[in-house]
Design a protein around this nucleic acid. Structure first.
Ligand SMILES: [Mn+2]
Length: 654
DNA sequence: ATACGGAGCACAT
DNA sequence: TGCTCCGTAT
């Protein structure tokens, strides 16, 4: 799963949002109007509620939008387009016939988020102090760039591809209460036993060893199917993990000999091999926009031309082409130029909203809001990079990047600089994992979908650490020991107290809500304590104990039932030390005879852990997103250690 | 145990 | 733009 986190813990930090997630959901609020061409901005309001949720909690926000489609996704996109068009015709017809319910259904299926919708949101969001940026291509890559370059502290998204891209910190499943699941790259690395270049997503050295590396993690995602490669029949995440771990070849070599690694796999065609390689390069070198240099570049620096022959092809156009016109690139990033038509559609200029150094037109109509840009601040000429969290500590308004936006967000003047002075932003619970253990049996379901595979892998990873006794330790550590946590908690308390009772934009209604939390949808304060992620702010004693007891009780009962591991396969693939590897790796040089692995998986049938702990299901408020509950439901017996050892069969070979 | 295809869903009343 | 659930087959 990932560590439950509340955005309240991110006060003072900067996050980048995968905005199309919001837009798509918001579009459902006005599916008919959008489909039939009527004017509406309901989707904007939906997104703005989320934005305000973040701003009101003192986060600085960068909304990131998708740009052009990669050639690799052209086919998929084309099909989607056709499907949507068909539904649109059908919807209009149904509407004409007066069958409005059916029409509505059809309208939902033809929802398309257009650049103009994105632009409408951008206009609105910028007024309230958010930054916006349109990616040259996929938002995924752009988000990763912002995060890994230190321009933002974390990314908010639903797309597990971000992990394949190598994004350092992602918050998934943010709900209307500000709760989500944090996935931290360092933590995942530790649990995958990734040591070398754990922090270098671009490091291609996966060859020569049998351990896990980030490159192999990426390969695993690719081989099991991803946006850029349709996958190989019979190869899912678990199989891919097993394969990847045992290889010492580079990706092309592996793809060529894939059939040697798994019995049921057929030889890949040349085209497939190339597709795999291209996918790998697309994850690494997709074109993004760098707001510091104010030009397009690649997510990682491709190997120098010297060594490029083996590593990267001279032409990376499938991962996007770099636009050499920097001025145009900037206008595209601002959304001023439509990336489809290349026509000018707006004339936003970050300088107009004022920056610490450059306050042109301060005479804006909303004088109350002195919002300036995080990423557009300065003249873009000579700016040094700065770690996002660091900069946010520096204080509101003085950093070239992390400017006075703080005053623009939320309560306007309500926030004193001292609020930002805390060091609570340092490292968020990195190294701590909160979450239970999911049984593979049920976790499998999570990755029935291709795109969620990488997420699952990381989930399993995260989950594994929590195994065993470490549970209690982890919980304890998390809940009150860590100094950073304490600082954060204190900070959060303060902030909560100062939190304006209402969203900034709803200025008209200065309500007297005493609610300690900002709520998106004015929900009843009643069910205010979602069990799951709520992190104790003030009373660090109450909540944690409950969590802990709930978990440990369940662990006891479950493990008493079956002392054995309930989730072998994938977890073993991912976590067993390289040394104790099981099935033979084909010799890199030639096609060797493979040692038949004689151990078939024993069907010791892990007793399938109960689907739901009564404790959990009882205490779970029906509110927190279907997902949260399903995660909770997945808690099951932890396995008593032991990872090494068993040299048993992988999924493949005879 | 794992993989896969297909169906459903996202808003908000 | 995506994720989740379920039944079924291997
Ligand atoms: Mn993606």
């Amino acid at each position: 799963s990932g560590r439950p986190i509340s955005i309240r813990e991110l006060a003072g930090q900067t996050v980048a949002v995968d905005t199309y997630c919001w837009l798509h959901k918001g579009a459902y609020a006005c599916a008919e109007k959008l489909g039939s061409g009527q004017d509406t901005d309901q989707y904007v309001h939906y997104c703005m509620r989320y934005l305000r949720l973040l701003l009101a909690n003192r986060l600085k926000v960068v909304l990131v939008f998708d740009g052009r489609n990669l050639p690799a996704k052209a086919d998929v996109e084309h099909k989607r387009r056709e499907t949507r068009a068909a539904y649109k015709r059908k919807a209009l017809q149904l509407l004409a016939e007066g069958r409005s319910a059916e029409a509505r259904e059809a309208f939902e299926r033809c929802i398309d988020v257009t650049p103009s919708m994105a632009l409408a949101l951008m206009r609105s969001a910028r007024k309230e102090g958010a930054d916006t940026i349109v990616a040259p291509y996929e938002a995924d890559a752009q988000l990763t760039h912002l995060c890994n370059a230190g321009l933002v502290d974390a990314v908010i998204s639903e797309d597990s591809d971000l992990l394949a891209f190598g994004c350092k910190r992602v918050i998934f499943k943010l709900d209307s209460q500000g709760n989500g699941l944090l996935m931290d790259r360092r933590q995942i690395a530790r649990q995958l036993c990734i040591t070398a270049s754990a922090d270098d997503p671009s490091a291609p050295e996966a060859t020569g060893s049998t351990g896990m590396t980030w490159a192999k993690f990426r390969w695993m995602c690719i081989l099991s199917g991803c946006d850029y490669f349709s996958g190989v029949p019979g190869v899912g995440l678990a199989t891919a993990a097993g394969i990847v771990k045992r290889t010492c070849l580079d990706l092309r070599g592996l793809a060529n000999k894939l059939f040697l690694y798994a019995k049921k796999v057929q030889r890949l065609s040349k085209e497939q091999v190339e597709a795999v390689v291209r996918a790998d390069l697309t994850f690494q070198y997709q074109v993004v926009f760098d707001p510091i240099e104010r030009r397009q570049c690649r997510l990682n620096t491709p190997p120098s031309a010297a060594e490029s022959e083996a590593e990267a092809p001279s032409n990376l156009d499938f991962a996007g082409s770099i636009l050499s016109d920097n001025a145009l690139a900037l206008q595209l990033a601002h959304g001023n130029v439509d990336f489809r038509t290349m026509e000018p559609v707006a004339d936003f200029d970050p300088a107009d909203i004022g920056t610490p150094h450059n306050n042109k037109n301060i005479a804006t109509t909303n004088s109350s809001r002195n919002s300036s840009s995080i990423i557009w601040a300065g003249d873009g000429s000579k700016l040094d990079r700065r770690i996002a969290s660091e900069a946010s500590i520096v204080g509101a308004g003085n950093s070239p990047y992390f400017s006075s936006m703080s005053s623009g967000c939320g309560s306007g003047s309500a926030i004193s600089a001292s609020l930002w002075r805390t060091d609570s932003t340092n490292s968020i619970g990195v190294g701590t994992t909160l979450s239970g253990v999911g049984s593979t049996e049920r976790l499998c379901r999570l990755y029935s979908n291709l795109s969620s595979d990488s997420l699952l892998a990381a989930e399993v990873a995260t989950v594994a650490e929590t195994d065993e006794k470490e549970n209690s330790e982890t919980l304890a550590r998390l809940d009150d020991e860590t100094p950073a946590n304490q600082a954060r908690a204190a900070d959060a308390v303060e902030i909560v107290d100062l939190t304006p009772s209402d969203a900034p934009a709803t200025s008209g209604s200065q309500q007297q809500l005493r609610q300690p939390e900002f709520r998106l949808f004015g929900e009843p304060a009643a069910r205010s304590q979602p069990l799951l992620p709520v992190r104790p702010l003030a009373a660090a004693s109450e909540q944690p104990k409950r969590r802990q007891s709930v978990l440990s009780r369940y662990f006891r009962s479950a493990s008493s039932k079956s002392p054995s591991d309930s989730s072998p396969g994938l977890r073993r693939q991912l976590f067993s030390p390289a040394s104790s590897q099981q099935s033979p790796s084909p010799s890199p040089s030639e096609s060797d005879a493979l040692e038949p692995a004689r151990k078939k998986s024993r069907s010791v049938s892990s007793n399938n852990a109960p689907f739901k702990s009564p404790t959990l299901s009882n205490s779970k408020p029906a509110a927190c997103g279907a997902d949260g509950s399903s995660l909770m439901d997945r808690f099951s017996a932890s396995r008593p250690a032991q990872i090494g050892g068993s040299g048993d069969a992988v999924v493949d070979d005879d």
